[in-house]
Design a protein around this nucleic acid. Structure first.
Length: 840
RNA sequence: GCGCGAGUGGUGAAAUUGGUAGACACGCUAGCCUUAGGAGCUAGUGCCUUCGGGCGUGCUGGUUCAAGUCCAGUCUCGCGCACCA
């Protein structure tokens, strides 16, 4: 008997698949397509890790399961190669990033092939190749044409270590997502994609996606839609002496009430208006002060008299502070009074204008109305600075700050109205009087895409003195990334490309006069926002993709990964929405089902990390003799794919044992020389059909762990029956079904067995086994008997026994009679095929 | 603080519609076999027990003939967002 030897079998089949291009697919109108992909890897120098192995074990189980079901399965692969690690490595070693990248790809590819994933390598793509980024640039020019790519001077997150700006999504807790250093604000002219135009569209389509709830929630929160109103407060300039005399001893202005009376006499309305944003216009009568963010353009202007210096100092300090200091909510709130006042448009009361850093410059209008009775933050601020607190919502609650809805009080004509009605009426009144309007705002900002780094797709723009920013025409694409000597950014806010003068100096496509190229490159997320479409048509040199081809393969049926909940998964949706509007695709959403898996942790339950030395290298596991088949099967057997799991070196041995049992069973069948023994045929057949039903069902819902458990049970059954010997036809079917069902997990071993079983075609092109319910039915059934909810007996009755017969049998059981005693059962319930419940 | 998810044996877990809780596997125990290996095979393995049975899915209640599953409350852990007005 041949022994199971993965280190011999696996390379053999990997070579056969490669030579035959076994997984290459083309459009086939006669077959239903199925498109599955993992999130393409960034090929780092470190090589493949357990997370990759896990992702692609899931991808391949899905691909192979559907391939055996006759689907035209596309399972492509590519490399996300632009980005900082390759560039930083290049700076350190003086090697060109392109060269480093090519080496890393070659290494990754070699490693991936050892996993036996059924990839169509003819579709391989690489985002840093000019053939690819040519079209990334083309898409940029199309967005530019539509006004969806624009340049703006603004305060941006700046990473002082990586010396580049970052998108909001790349700042995590005030730190750079790559290097962890504390980010700073810097005012620079930057390129943006106008994702905010698509906020509503992205929100709407989210509902129908077959994505995990937590990802949908994360995206909903990120978009952060809130409905409310913008309300104008007219600024009232006060004579300096007047203001000073009203100042209370603690630096705060006198209470608002004392000012209410003299608005008309002393107040001099200026042209300035402060527009605030509020989601609770129903509480406007309780607005007793205004707070401006330090970045607010009026903040300096409104600082008057004695308050001028303090205000300016405060603003200067606040703008310098890192976001960590500013957004730490355990910190006590601070602020300064500007000396100016504004008028509450509904009550006519004069309210002081403050500047405080608890108000964010970038959200809403950068100004809020302080309603301390109904907002915790405003309350804390009002308490500290002795500002007046006016309760305007009756909440029937003793809480100091009631922030829920309720009935209005102290609100003039609106008293007695519930919040929602009052909101509508107040906004309507503001609109009528040109004092405000209903407004929807979003937390999401536009996507900042320019990077002051070398290793990215150059932004295809030429700056001309006469024509401004001009898109590079399609026939001049790609704008090739020039080879240069020194890649390092110098911290002057420009990429190293700015020093490639031959490249920078060009002519304007519109007028032909000397002009300069844009020297920023695009965020790597731009490249990954359309690769799922390029896979469908990867060698097209005429256009980014042929719409018909893409409309056949896309959208993706399954997208497998465990990262990028908002960033990539939001951007890829955004671009596809735009492509839909441009008529380039006939669907809005690029990904139907998102298979978002957990992390594989180290044996001790903590994250694998090089510094801790607890990293499990998937290639080591293969080399130890377990092979890729055992590794893959184990990764899927560990538990539900959604959950985090800890590696266990003993458990993988158990899975290897299972594969070995499949192998041994098959070999013993093949080697069997005796007569046919039909004794167990019915039982074997029943077990086979039951297992096919269960495994098929489990794999349809991606319950890999239970599918593998069912296969183990099946193998255990067959081991019991084989003791008596084999009958060739029954056992051939039983074993072929077993081998086929194991193929999605252990493709090499099953390919070998399939061949030994006499098949010339590859197992992956075989037809998945079917089951016959009639063969699964047993002649008898076991019924549990409960008395008052406790199981007291188990009876075996014939499968076609009627209700009365079952109940009668149940009641006459010795142990049942004992517990029923003399009592007359109050109720006897029969749950067909399962149990009898007797109530006494 | 807000939102989402999860709490089941010594361990990873299973239970798809309320219907015999713990499938499958690891580990452990005993035995068999063996040219001795990190091999293979068989049986047992939730806890307690006076061997009748009793208890058991984080905790407290509720609905039901029947609850891991449904409802109310509560605790713990994990994740996401976090001064977004």
């Amino acid at each position: 008997m041949k022994r199971y030897n993965p280190s011999e079998i696996e390379p053999k089949w990997q070579q056969i698949w490669e030579e035959q291009k076994a997984n290459h697919v083309e459009i086939d109108p006669h077959k239903e397509k199925l498109y599955v992909s993992g999130m393409f890897p960034y090929p780092s120098g470190a090589g493949m890790h357990t997370g990759h192995a896990f992702s692609y074990s899931i991808v391949d189980a899905i691909a192979r399961f559907h391939r055996q079901h006759g689907y035209n399965v596309m399972n492509p692969m590519g490399w996300d190669t632009f980005g900082l690690p390759a560039e930083n490595y290049a700076i350190k070693t003086g090697t060109a990033p392109a060269k480093v990248t090519a080496e890393n790809i070659a290494n990754f590819k070699r490693q991936f092939k050892r996993m036996g994933v059924s990839i169509d390598w003819e579709r391989e793509i690489n985002t840093s190749s000019p053939e690819y980024y040519r079209w990334t640039q083309w898409i940029f020019t199309k967005l530019f044409e539509r006004g969806l790519a624009y340049q703006k001077e603004s305060l941006q997150w700046w990473c002082p270590v990586d010396k580049t700006v970052l998108a909001n999504e790349q700042v995590e807790g005030g730190r750079c997502w790559r290097c962890g250093s504390i980010v700073e604000k810097k005012s620079m002219k930057q390129w943006f994609f106008k994702i905010t135009d698509y906020a509503d569209s992205l929100l709407e389509e989210l509902d129908d996606l077959d994505w995990p709830a937590k990802i949908k929630t994360a995206q909903t929160n990120w978009i952060g839609k809130s409905e409310g109103a913008e309300i104008m407060f007219a600024v009232v300039a006060m004579p300096f002496s007047e203001t000073a005399s009203r100042q209370a001893s603690n630096g705060a202005p006198a209470p608002v009430e004392t000012w209410a009376a003299d608005v008309s006499e002393n107040g001099i309305a200026t042209p300035a208006n402060i527009t605030v944003f509020s989601t609770r216009p129903d509480t406007i009568f309780g607005a007793s002060f205004i707070v401006l963010a330090p970045e607010h353009p009026l903040a300096r202007q409104l600082a008057v008299g004695d308050f001028k210096e303090a205000t300016e100092n405060y603003i200067a300090e606040a703008v310098k502070k890192s976001e960590i200091d500013r957004t730490n909510d355990t910190k006590e709130k601070t602020g300064v009074f500007t000396g100016s006042y504004a008028i509450n448009p509904v009550s006519g009361e004069k309210v002081p204008v403050w500047v405080a850093d608890y108000v964010l410059g970038g959200y809403g209008t950068g100004a809020v109305m302080g309603v301390p009775a109904h907002d915790e933050r405003d309350f804390a601020f009002a308490e500290k600075y002795s500002l007046s607190i006016i309760k305007v919502i009756d909440g029937n609650s003793d809480e100091q700050v009631y922030h829920d809805e309720g009935v209005l009080i102290n609100s003039g004509d609106y008293n007695g109205l519930p919040s929602s009605d009052a909101r509508e009426k107040i906004v309507a009144w503001l609109e009528e009087n040109n004092l405000g309007q209903g407004k929807t705002t979003y937390k999401m900002r536009d996507w900042l895409i320019s990077r002051q780094r070398y290793w990215g797709a150059p932004i295809p723009i030429i700056h001309c003195d006469e024509h401004g920013a001009v898109a590079v025409p399609e026939d001049q694409l790609p704008v090739i990334l020039p080879e240069i000597e020194d890649y390092a950014p110098k911290g002057d806010g420009k990429s190293a490309l700015a020093r490639a003068e031959d490249w920078v100096n060009t002519t304007c496509p519109t007028c032909g006069k000397p002009a300069k190229r844009e020297t920023d490159t695009m965020d790597g997320y731009a490249c990954s926002s359309w690769y799922l479409l390029r896979y469908a048509d990867p060698r097209n040199a005429e256009r980014a993709w042929d719409p018909e081809t893409v409309n056949y393969w896309n959208p993706l049926d399954f997208y497998v990964g465990g990262d990028h909940a908002v960033a990539h998964l939001l951007y890829v949706r955004f671009w596809t929405h735009v492509f839909y509007d441009m008529g380039l695709v006939n669907f809005k959403e690029p990904i139907h089902k998102l298979v978002y898996h957990g992390y594989i942790n180290a044996e001790d339950g903590t994250k694998m990390s090089k510094s801790k030395g607890n990293v499990v290298d998937p290639l080591d596991v293969i080399d130890q003799g377990y092979g890729a088949d055992a590794l893959r099967t184990y990764l899927l057997f560990m538990g539900p794919y959604e959950l985090d799991a800890s590696w266990n070196s003993r458990s993988i041995a158990g899975v290897y044992r299972f594969l070995n049992r499949v192998w041994v069973l098959s070999q013993q069948f093949l080697d069997y020389k005796g007569d046919d023994v039909t004794k167990n045929d019915d039982a074997v057949r029943r077990s086979q059909h039951k297992t096919v039903r269960k495994v098929t069902d489990d794999l349809r819902r991606l319950s890999f762990n239970t599918a593998i458990a069912a296969l183990m049970e099946y193998v255990n059954d067959l081991y019991k029956y084989k003791v008596d010997g084999f009958s060739r036809e029954t056992w051939r079917q039983a074993i072929e079904a077993l081998v086929q069902m194991t193929e999605p997990f252990a493709p090499h071993m099953t390919a070998e067995l399939w061949q030994e079983l006499g098949h010339e075609d590859l197992i992956q092109h075989a037809t998945w086994p079917t089951w016959d319910d009639a063969l699964i039915v047993e002649s008898t059934m076991k019924i549990a008997v409960q008395v008052n909810g406790k199981v007291r007996a188990e009876i075996e009755v014939s499968a076609d026994a009627g209700e009365d017969e079952v109940k009668q049998t149940a009641l006459t059981q010795e142990n049942v009679a004992k517990f029923v005693a003399d009592a007359e059962p109050k109720k006897v319930i029969y749950v067909t095929g399962r149990l009898v419940s007797i109530v006494v």
